[in-house]
Design a protein around this nucleic acid. Structure first.
Length: 611
DNA sequence: AAAAAAG
């Protein structure tokens, strides 16, 4: 039954030293944090107002000070306290825990659990690391921990290391090489890295490892309130599901429990999952607020906060909700918890908002603006609104003829509106193209069904709104069509990033017409930076729009890199900063210097972002 | 102006 790796896990656990700070909570990595000059104070037993004077039926919050070390097992396993380190919480602690061995952890890897995974990369799941060689990286902040070249340089723990091998991750991607040591050192992080470059693992590994190593005050058993140690927020339900699935793989047989909560799905199963115990809660904001209001979740024990697609989470629609969760509930304040923000794009005014959540953080930028741009061939075609459908049909026909090995390549078609998505899906279907759609007016069941049909290739065309623009990892998307271009270049970056993932190549085609002229300049610049062929007519549009002040100046940082730390930008450190960002007043003030190839002071800094 | 996220 037990395989060799499990045995070595035991040995590791037995050999591991036990360090327990008797305040109930051990800082994530006190030593490293101290080295970094950022040691975190022990949390006091603060009880937030809304949790005081609760009816006696509910169990009081976990005793932060009085919990004897011997009771510090995360699962409350009587007498089963782990020696203080890796792996021990896996199978043996579980039997003493509150699930008493009733449940077996579902193997997220399929049947080959007990087989030592092959080290040969399989064609479909391996990451093409050659595509990540020689990528520009920039970090800023105090005492930045050095990058690593191999997972083995970091002590992530045997159980997690095995899962990493099972995932066939042979070596860390660039963002992982930098972000993981930073996070392991206990530092807050704002990370900007290309789409498809492995951000999920970059924040999951340190969280899982930290929870495995940490000794936390026992959380009450039998309470209807769940006390996650880590919270991961994302902007869409499907993305939360995906992160949950990934995190489950990474935490398989580590004893670390991952639960997902999102809207549109029955809440009862989610409540049951929470009651069984949760270390890492992955959630969308709305459902989390619901759970917090019902007092079914408390953020009191949260040691790690991760925001995926962080710029999206802090834009106008989301910001109040996120602020409420992070600042107005019972989550430990910044500097006490560890906070990690990730995205492929990070506009400076959003960085300024985000800095409220961070303490002495490190800014990390990996790779060029947004996408794995060299891997994605970007085309822009001038297509009038009335011609879009027939033009799309031409593309799909051509693709069908190129059809690789019987199965049609997956094509993701982005449109601007939910109605437009329905209409286009219907039109494609009646014209003999197997299409489905995903957007916010469809039921969650329909959304998930559509995604499955698409992923499986059963319906190789998916029409989508921006709900599918960010984060979704759909292997084998060969072509992204921007049937309607977005108004924001960052959205474009995220959309085309649905292809060209994990080092594979992809194609992105955009339909451009007069309605998109406000995007022309940013689009032309992005394409130029990505070594793409910019049509002459697009350059003319770009030059034209740079005069009339058309369009927002919303570059995510410009230059050849994924972003620039706004703290380096003096205009953002004066008088509240970003007011000038939209170019309302002085046209140059949001950026470091001028130098745009399109002149006019518009887009200043695009070519000089790294001076 | 639109999309997303609670029901």
């Amino acid at each position: 039954m037990r395989t060799s790796w499990a045995d070595s896990e035991e040995a590791e656990a037995a050999a591991a030293p036990s360090t327990i700070i008797n305040n109930g909570v051990v800082p994530n990595s006190g030593a490293a944090a101290a080295v970094a000059g950022n040691s975190r104070p022990a949390r006091s037993a603060y009880v937030p107002p809304h949790l005081r004077n609760r009816p006696p039926s509910s169990t009081p919050p976990p005793p932060a000070v009085s919990a004897p070390p011997a009771a510090n097992t995360r699962w409350g396993g009587g007498g089963g306290r782990s020696g203080g380190s890796f792996g021990r919480a896996a199978s043996n602690t579980r039997t003493g825990g509150w699930d008493r061995g009733r449940e077996r952890e579902v193997n997220p890897f399929g049947d080959d659990v007990d087989v030592e995974p092959p080290f040969v990369q399989q064609e479909n799941s391996g990451i093409n690391f050659d595509a990540y060689e020689d990528i520009p990286v920039d970090t800023s902040g105090d005492n930045v921990p050095p990058a690593v070249n191999a997972f083995s340089e970091i002590d992530l723990g045997d159980a997690l290391n095995l899962n990493i091998r099972r995932c066939k991750y042979v070596k860390p991607t660039p963002v992982q090489r930098h972000a993981i040591p930073i996070s392991i050192a206990g530092r807050d992080l704002m990370a900007c890295a290309q789409t498809g470059s492995g951000k999920t693992a970059a924040f999951c590994f340190p969280i899982i490892s930290g929870i495995m190593k940490g000794q936390y005050a026992q959380r009450p058993r039998g309470s209807r309130t769940a006390y996650p140690l880590a919270l991961i927020l994302s902007p869409t339900r499907e993305l939360s599901c995906q992160i949950h699935d990934e995190a489950r793989k990474f935490s398989y047989q580590t004893g670390v429990r991952v639960v997902v909560a999102y809207g549109g799905a029955p809440i009862n199963q989610q409540l049951r999952d929470l009651e069984r115990g949760v270390d890492i809660l992955v959630a969308t904001p709305g459902r989390l607020v619901d759970l917090l209001e019902r007092a079914r979740v408390s953020l009191q024990m949260v040691q790690y906060l991760a925001l995926d697609e962080a710029d999206r989470m802090l834009d106008m629609g989301f910001e109040p909700q996120i602020r409420r969760i992070v600042e107005q509930m019972d989550m430990p304040p910044r500097g006490v918890r560890q906070t990690m923000l990730f995205s492929a794009t990070f506009p400076k005014e959003i960085q300024r908002l985000a800095s409220d959540f961070l303490s002495n953080y490190i800014f990390l930028a990996v790779g060029r603006v947004g996408s794995s741009t060299d891997l994605i061939v970007q085309r822009v075609e001038f297509v009038q609104e009335s011609d879009k459908r027939s033009h799309l049909m031409d593309l799909l026909h051509a693709q069908r003829e190129n059809g690789t090995h019987g199965k049609q390549a997956l094509t993701l078609v982005f449109v601007e509106t939910k109605k437009g998505a329905d209409a286009l899906e219907h039109w494609l279907c009646i014209n003999g193209f197997p299409a489905t759609s995903i957007h916010g007016d469809r039921s969650q069941q329909e959304r998930e069904h559509a995604l499955r049909l698409f992923k499986s290739g059963a319906t190789p065309i998916l029409v989508a709104t921006d709900v599918a623009a960010r984060g979704l990892d759909i292997p084998h998307v060969a072509h992204v069509v921007n049937f309607d271009l977005p108004n924001d270049i960052d959205d474009y970056v995220h959309r085309i990033g649905r292809t060209g993932r994990a080092g594979k190549t992809g194609l992105a085609t955009a339909f451009f017409n007069e309605n998109n002229s406000s995007l022309a300049r940013a689009l032309a610049e992005l394409m130029q930076e990505s070594n793409q062929e910019v049509p002459a007519w697009l350059s003319r549009y770009a030059a034209r729009s740079s005069y009339g002040g058309g369009g927002r100046n919303r570059r995510s940082g410009g230059g050849r890199f994924g972003g620039r730390d706004f703290r380096k930008d003096s205009s953002f450190n004066r008088s509240g900063g970003g007011g000038d960002y939209y170019g309302g007043g002085r046209s140059n003030s949001g950026y470091g210097a001028s130098g745009s190839s399109y002149g006019g002071g518009y887009g200043a800094g695009v070519t000089s972002a790294w001076d």
